[in-house]
Write a protein that binds this DNA or RNA. Structure first.
Lengths: 146, 146
DNA sequence: TCCACTTTCAACCACTTTCGACCACCTCAT
DNA sequence: ATGAGGTGGTCGAAAGTGGTTGAAAGTGGA
């Protein structure tokens, strides 16, 4: 389970050094293969292949003509690329995603349970501030027993 | 399972080099035979013959007088053509489809589970931006356990 | 209907470019 | 001072690109 945030840097070749704490977890639980993608082009998601395949299973069960699936799949594939971690614990982020999500220079990496997210610091903070948790959101969560 | 995007180029002869990652998967799981077609004339689809035949099975089960089937079949056949991959991993896209989908010069190839899609980069991005995932879409997906 | 000519394209060859694997060094905290 | 975390750079294999050619398909004329 990944949790918490770590500041990190993208080098000029588009390589992201995974924070040591995450790397440790990856080494012991997963392999060095990842699927890197985004649902909206604004935040990059780094999924251990193993976890991603579970998600693909669920997705494959939905008919291809379902419009919501098609939209989602278009995005996941448009931004997505396989990547492998090198011995130094770095992964190459897809160029299309780096540009789209503006992840260059100083970024934030954080753990989202089964995967990592990489975001432009300011953009992420701004988005959070503009979209606070509403009472309706809390209602919905309460419905799940939280 | 094909996934993710790869930038690619169409040469002046209309040949598309399949990205190495996809070619590898094709070599090990499928043969070099493809059915290339489109549902809308805007995005080219490259189906390994083996997978396409499965789709044809499902299609065959729908009554011929079903108007939606007729429409779909008209399009699939209008744009469709068989193609074979050469030793360098290139396929010739049907001219009618190249013009219709405007896939010339720089394009994007991406994996859509069982097949590949080839699209004009700008046109595809534009279409995505104009048709974002709505809250209703997300609701629908949540209904499938995603 | 058959033959001659034209056009197309699949198969092959040769060259260029890219990037991922690896190495070496720097920095910082203890 | 030492070891772990982080960074920059290189180099060769693999990926990608352009061009040529011969066989086959297509076309038209007698």
């Amino acid at each position: 389970m990944f949790r918490g945030n770590h500041p990190a840097r993208m080098d000029e070749k588009g390589r992201l050094k995974l924070p040591a704490e995450f790397k440790r977890r990856i080494d012991e639980q997963y392999g060095a293969q990842f699927y890197i993608t985004s649902k909206d082009g604004k935040v990059a998601e780094i999924h251990p292949l193993q976890e991603w395949e579970k998600f693909e299973q669920k997705l494959a069960a939905i008919p291809n003509f379902n419009p919501a699936k098609k939209k989602l799949l278009d995005r996941l594939n448009y931004y997505g690329q396989m990547a492998e971690m090198d011995a130094q614990g770095r992964v190459l982020l897809p160029q299309i995603l780096r540009e789209s999500a503006k992840v260059t220079g100083d970024v934030v990496v954080f753990g989202m349970q089964t995967y990592l997210e990489v975001a432009n610091h300011e953009a992420f903070k701004k988005n959070m501030d503009e979209n606070p948790l509403t009472p309706e959101d809390e209602q919905a969560l309460a419905g799940f027993g939280l």
